[in-house]
């Protein structure tokens, strides 16, 4: 999609600048933007390396098993159709934990594995099952505990208090998550009574 959007945005902007006489501003903004990209990447480099390293410790120690156990009651509520100890149970748990820890790169392959396992047991191959629908909705909610990327941006732009957004992010995530889960549950119940 960026193959279409990216050139269109730049072309329209340059033409608009010619008409409105903002050419000087536009010219300098091109190089300023490159500078900002570098500045942000350097800041991201530090934060992401640190956080990835810390989270590797969680993955390689037995902490991950502890967290999986803690999640089981929530799991039973969200995925009543999935048996405890099954393959998809384990894969979904690992995906959710990777999301919580902010390991996006690890979360996606784990999530795709879980989708494949659930698809094997799906009797209607072109339609999402209830569990799959709930699983995707969880993945579109940002479950991560520490919003490291945003903190890195705020830090690189000289914020007085880069981490001040942590609790507000938690509150917003929880509200969005509750809305998503509740609506999904309502839709699932509706489709059951229909059948």
């Amino acid at each position: 999609m960026l193959n279409i959007l990216w050139p269109i945005i730049i072309i329209i902007s340059i033409i608009f600048a010619i008409i409105s006489g903002n050419m000087e501003k536009l010219n300098s903004s091109i190089f300023e933007s490159c500078g900002t990209a570098i500045q942000l990447s350097i800041s991201l480099l530090g934060t992401i390396c640190l956080w990835n390293g810390i989270m590797q410790i969680v993955q390689d120690s037995s902490l991950i098993k502890k967290i999986t156990k803690l999640l089981q009651p929530i799991f039973r509520f969200l995925f009543p159709d999935i048996k405890e100890g099954s393959k998809e149970n384990k894969e979904i748990s690992l995906n959710i934990i990777a999301n919580i820890l902010g390991l996006g790169n690890a979360a996606t392959p784990l999530g795709l594995k879980a989708m494949k396992t659930m698809q094997e047991k799906n009797s209607n191959k072109d339609t999402l099952t209830n569990s799959m629908a709930m699983f995707i909705i969880l993945n579109t909610a940002s479950l991560q505990l520490i919003p490291t990327t945003v903190i890195a941006i705020r830090n690189s732009l000289g914020s007085q208090n880069p981490t001040s957004i942590i609790v507000p992010v938690w509150i917003s995530t929880i509200c969005a998550g509750i809305a998503g889960i509740t609506l999904a549950k309502i839709f699932i119940r509706k489709s059951k009574t229909k059948n």
């Binding site: 902007s13 608009f16 600048a17 903002n22 903004s29 933007s33």
Partner: peptide, 17 residues
């Protein structure tokens, strides 16, 4: 990716669009 997108957003802002 960041460099490409940042330039696009930068010109979008500075042009007035």
């Amino acid at each position: 990716t960041l460099v490409g997108i940042f330039v696009a957003v930068g010109v979008l802002r500075s042009s007035g669009v």
